[in-house]
Design a protein around this nucleic acid. Sequence first.
DNA 1: TTGAAAGCGGTACCAC
DNA 2: GTGGTACCGCTTTCAA
Lengths: 341, 341
Amino acid sequence: MAKIDEVAKAAGVSISTVSYALSGKRPVAKDTRERIEKAVRELGYSPNAGARMLAGDRTHIFALTEPLRTDTHAPTHMAFVLATAVAARRQGYDILLLTDEEARAGMSRVASSGLVDAILVLDVAPDDPRVPLARAIATPSVFIGVPDDNDGLVCVDLDFETAAAMAVDALADAGHERIALVGQTDIAYRSSNFPPRVRVAAERRAAERSLSLMFRSSGAVMVDPAATRRGVRELVDAGVTGLILHCAQEAHAAALDELAERGLSVPTDISVVAVGSSFDTAALPTAVDTIPLIPQASCDLAVELAMRSLGADRPEPGLHLIPPTYVGHGSLRRPAGPASS
Amino acid sequence: MAKIDEVAKAAGVSISTVSYALSGKRPVAKDTRERIEKAVRELGYSPNAGARMLAGDRTHIFALTEPLRTDTHAPTHMAFVLATAVAARRQGYDILLLTDEEARAGMSRVASSGLVDAILVLDVAPDDPRVPLARAIATPSVFIGVPDDNDGLVCVDLDFETAAAMAVDALADAGHERIALVGQTDIAYRSSNFPPRVRVAAERRAAERSLSLMFRSSGAVMVDPAATRRGVRELVDAGVTGLILHCAQEAHAAALDELAERGLSVPTDISVVAVGSSFDTAALPTAVDTIPLIPQASCDLAVELAMRSLGADRPEPGLHLIPPTYVGHGSLRRPAGPASS
DNA sequence: TTGAAAGCGGTACCAC
DNA sequence: GTGGTACCGCTTTCAA
């Protein structure tokens, strides 16, 4: 726990020079800076966090609120937390965890105590209680996800609507007429924001392209592989030849296993596109085209916007949607020939 | 962001009285205190975190290091993070996340910057790089889990060894002679601390009771339901009549499903005991006796020890093991009659 | 039972 | 290019 005056003495300079050398907010002669850096290294100096918070205008801490519901899909959630932490550290920021019970009181607390510079909101519900809270406090916040009422909020997310439309288009262009969406768990369509966005967008596009779009979920509250397989079976029996998967990894695996067991091969017998998958799709039993949800991309952008909201060029309130990318892996049937074009 | 002097003015007292009224470190007249509390409420006052850290001797923040490996079982991990956060908040503490890439540098950083009062170490590996680090820094740390080399460290955990022995005893007492352990994933026996502890302790006790103990894992890197079922099938075929489950929820479900499909009923045909399960075993397809691992119990104790290591009655370095409890659900065959007693 | 004031360890302004 | 120093907002000693 060396202090700045010890560093100053060791380097034979004043306290302020040490401060400026470290912050870079004022030019410091090369050799002076090197002497200081050497002293810092030898003393294992790291500026006192409390003093820095008090004297400076930054705490170098972001809060991350996450309402860990029991139906939260843990692996996906963890990927976002990790990506956020990594992105924050790259900017010299630490992450303070605000969990459920404390999520609401916690947000007010860290805001009014000046513990954090900004709040990142994870696992956003369509009707999220943190929305009014975010509006009420002075600390800037960035939502990773899009609540229904997002007026004046800074929200980051994959453009799920476009992603869903792209998936439908891909299947339509390949000549499919009866397609289906294998979605998230039933409860996710109420407690989370993006599942309904995908479903609604897919339905709209299917209607525009005059396709029949069926739907099956992948469980009630938790992912249910057996239920997912049953759903896929029903879809296939109903003559579906194109599948959009928007579910957890386990459900993807279950769906593809079911196809394989029924002797249906991709893409010969059935086309498959995965939308918004945040896991490594290479680990799936069958290679499928994907329009991935990349946690790192969302979290990097969220952190960037959080940083910017501390300075002069505040980001525009509104949706900051990340354009989806279609990654082909040959799971689409060849487009229909001239006859149907 | 009201400040303490505003509260003082509003309550018509001095700054120090406000401070003492809030900290309780000095008696304050009842009506004075009430005036202060009223002012605090009306102004939405919350003491400035930086100032408090700087002036006081506590930061009111604990670091939580977690090396989110790709093979980490996310749901279990999340349960521990959540339990830790809740326990910490009950003591007025917040949790700062230190993830992987930064786990090592991060520990040094938060220690030398005085950002946190103590460090909680999660997801402990047998040969954990954070062990030497914890010894090197001044900030006290508490390990939730037991590394091989734990000399001088404060470690909290369920007494897995005793739990494993209890499970073996339960099966032995019920008259079983060929029993088996369905364990974690293969990789967990290298990257995590408790799976080998359970396995070794079970083997030792089985030997002492002259039982044959077979072993099957529940996957390579990730939980693999199919592999688990295959393993259970092999065990049953080998004449095993008593099963100890020490694996993730999905693997429990797979194992029990396999038994059910083979027409084996619990406990008539086979006895089952779950050891160290940290999820809700009531959600399993079959009721089983359990010797649960309760995240809240471990995390509460860890936080308590962390608090104590800041004050006068520092906890003894060493293992602080939580005694296991056997919770019966009728999944054990009735003890053998007099003939074999 | 209460108040005044000296720090805590940085940051950043003002001088030189 | 460098140094002196007045804060930042709280905690806690000392005094009354």
